[in-house]
């Protein structure tokens, strides 16, 4: 049987190593030290089509994450998607800021991009964006392109 002090030492090493592993996972592998919204405020944006936008998707302005999407629901009165987002309290945006759904990279995840306007008044908790731009749907884009091509060749014939 192993003696007691040696055993205590090994158990101590084991527990310390285990916690070091957990710390490594949360700091180096995970993003615990990364962005999280503290004492933020919520804003609403209505979109015709949210495409593949998901809850917890980032809200970016000038490429920097300023908040996260907290809820996506269907508004049965406007027949539009109501996207609720939580913006970090440190960042304020003018009233005429526009929100658009963008894609990072060709196949990347979708996020909300905010383009700040020039209004003096700032958006407050519960406000909604006046100007929004929906997600680009590839099929619509292609059909529009085909339609344009077809009408072009029609006018060329005449």
């Amino acid at each position: 049987m192993i003696e007691r002090t040696k055993m205590d030492l090994w158990v101590g090493v084991f527990v310390a190593a285990g916690f070091a592993g957990l710390l490594f996972l949360s700091m180096k592998v995970g993003n615990m030290s990364g962005f999280s919204v503290t004492n933020g405020y919520t804003l609403h944006a209505y979109f015709d089509n949210v495409g593949g936008l998901k809850v917890r998707a980032p809200v970016k302005s000038a490429g920097v994450v300023v908040g996260r999407v907290s809820e996506i629901k269907f508004d049965n009165e406007r027949y539009e998607a109501d996207v609720v987002m939580k913006i970090d309290g440190r960042f304020k945006f003018p009233k005429d800021t526009s929100a658009s759904i963008l894609t990072s990279g060709l196949l990347g995840e979708q996020y909300i991009g905010l383009d700040a306007g020039g209004d003096d008044q700032m958006l407050k908790n519960g406000d909604k964006f006046q100007i929004t731009q929906s997600a680009v749907v590839l099929e619509k884009l292609i059909s529009q392109f085909m339609y344009n091509k077809a009408s072009e060749s029609d006018s060329n014939k005449k």
Binding site: F14, V15, A17, G18, F19, G21, L22, F24, L25, V29
Partner: peptide, 16 residues
């Protein structure tokens, strides 16, 4: 119960 989560954390760390 104490050792398994620690072992799992070490497993994941070594795996990464």
């Amino acid at each position: 119960v104490i050792s398994m989560p620690l072992l799992a954390a070490l497993f994941s760390t070594m795996g990464v």
